[in-house]
Simulated scan of single mutants.
Amino acid sequence: MSNVELKGLSEAASFQTAQASLPPVHTWSPPFCGDMDLVIKANGEWFHEGGKIKRSAMVAMFSRILWFEAGEYFLVTPVEKVRIQVEDAPFLVTEWRWIETEYGQAIEFKTHTDDVLILGVDCDLWMDFFKGEERPYISMRYGMKALVRRNAFYGLAESLERVETSKGTGMGVISAGKSYLLMEDE
């Protein structure tokens, strides 16, 4: 991606948390231009050409143009599409809190890239395995996912209650009137 395109995207993507502030990536169909040496590690850190990207604003800007397609991740602009590598989930939930919504009490998640999502409205929560370890995830835009950071999940675990879902019965959370099973009864 050229510096001119990145500058234009940084101006367009104002780093606000509202979905309306995201660039219209879903409307762009640029040609594939090759691979970029950018890796999002399983712990949520972003590395470019072997060096960690330390500026959170740069990570947030890149996250706004991230696209998931056919099991692969790309950074896209209106004119270019480059493939990057993601070890697990490209986003990381760092904070959560209970809020009141029109759907009742709900959990609001915030990612390390300042995305804000409401469980049961903007995203869903589930458990899955990564390299043999069971981990909690939430859904994100364009079919992507965010790993719920360990400290955030431990805080969330204090709110567990009995739930019944189509997947079974056990301990979970209820947010915006929807139940999420996190630990199934044996």
Rank of each mutant, 00 (worst) to 15 (best):
N3S: 04
E49H: 11
L160W: 14
V121T: 05
K110N: 02
S63N: 07
T27L: 10
S21G: 12
T169Q: 15
V163F: 10
E45D: 13
G104D: 04
K52R: 15
L38N: 01
M61G: 09
F32D: 12
V82D: 02
L66V: 04
S10C: 04
G168S: 12
F91H: 03
T94A: 01
P30E: 12
K41R: 14
P78Q: 14
E158P: 06
L125M: 13
G155M: 11
F62N: 02
I65E: 00
S56K: 12
D88N: 11
T27H: 11
E158I: 10
A70F: 14
G172I: 06
R55G: 06
F129I: 09
E134S: 13
M36L: 15
A42F: 05
L147I: 05
Y137P: 01
T27R: 10
L117M: 01
E87R: 00
G34A: 12
D114S: 10
F47E: 03
L75K: 06
G51L: 04
E164I: 14
E133L: 12
G170H: 07
E95A: 06
V148P: 00
P136W: 03
R97Q: 15
R162F: 11
P30H: 14
A60F: 04
R55S: 05
G177N: 06
D35R: 15
R162M: 14
V39G: 01
W96V: 05
W46L: 08
E80W: 05
E133R: 15
S175A: 10
E11C: 07
A152K: 00
T17E: 07
T94Q: 01
T111Q: 03
V116H: 07
I99N: 09
A157W: 12
N43P: 07
E95S: 09
Y73V: 09
K110A: 04
S63I: 06
T111I: 05
I40S: 02
M140K: 00
S63L: 02
W96A: 04
K145H: 13
F74M: 11
K41P: 01
T165A: 13
T113L: 02
S179Q: 13
E95P: 01
T27W: 06
F91E: 00
E133C: 14
Q85M: 11
F153E: 09
E161P: 03
R135W: 10
S175M: 03
M183I: 14
L125A: 08
D115P: 05
L156E: 00
P24F: 03
L147Q: 00
S21H: 02
N43A: 10
G132E: 13
S14Y: 00
L117Q: 06
L38V: 08
A57D: 14
C33T: 02
H112L: 04
D185W: 10
A13L: 08
I84W: 03
I99E: 08
C123N: 07
D88S: 13
F74V: 03
G143Y: 13
E11H: 07
Y154F: 11
A18Q: 11
T27P: 01
T113S: 00
T169S: 13
P78C: 12
W126Y: 15
D128T: 15
G155K: 06
S14T: 10
H26S: 09
A18W: 02
Q85H: 13
V59K: 03
S166T: 06
K167H: 13
G71N: 15
M140G: 05
D35N: 15
V121A: 00
W67C: 01
G120H: 00
S139Q: 09
G34F: 03
P30W: 10
G34E: 08
E184H: 11
E69G: 09
E102Q: 12
K81V: 06
A89I: 02
D122T: 04
